[in-house]
């Protein structure tokens, strides 16, 4: 069984982790096109490359980010999400045209 290094708990069996999908930037849901939204929701890259993914260490409920090569399945590094997400995210009000 594969092992992964959790930034909080150290090297653990992969069975302790839950995959949370790729880290993706959400387009503005209130202004993007339908296509851009569908791309965000339904499509993932499937090439041989390094992907940045969410992983959860289930016993401690800790989410972190891992960079993994999809060809070798090697996990190159793992780190706390605050490295990528360090400021409060706000959402703009929806466009109200046609909703009068």
């Amino acid at each position: 069984m594969k092992m992964m290094n959790c930034p909080l708990n150290g090297l653990r069996n992969i069975s302790e982790f839950v995959h949370g999908g790729e880290v993706k930037e959400m387009p503005d849901p209130n202004s993007c096109s339908d296509d851009a939204w569908a791309e965000y929701v339904f499509y993932t890259e499937n090439g041989i490359s390094v992907v940045t993914e969410w992983w959860l260490h289930a016993p401690s409920g800790y989410w972190f980010i891992a960079e993994r090569h999809t060809g070798s399945d090697e996990i190159l590094k793992t780190y706390d999400p605050s490295v990528l997400f360090n400021k409060r995210v706000e959402f703009s009000a929806p466009v109200t045209e046609g909703m009068a």
């Binding site: 839950v18 949370g20 959860l56 409920g61 989410w63 997400f85 360090n86 400021k87 409060r88 995210v89």
Partner: peptide, 14 residues
């Protein structure tokens, strides 16, 4: 639901 919530807030930082 709990996992989703904690994952969302890892991004939103509320």
């Amino acid at each position: 639901v709990y996992r989703d919530m904690t994952k969302w807030n890892a991004q939103w930082r509320l």
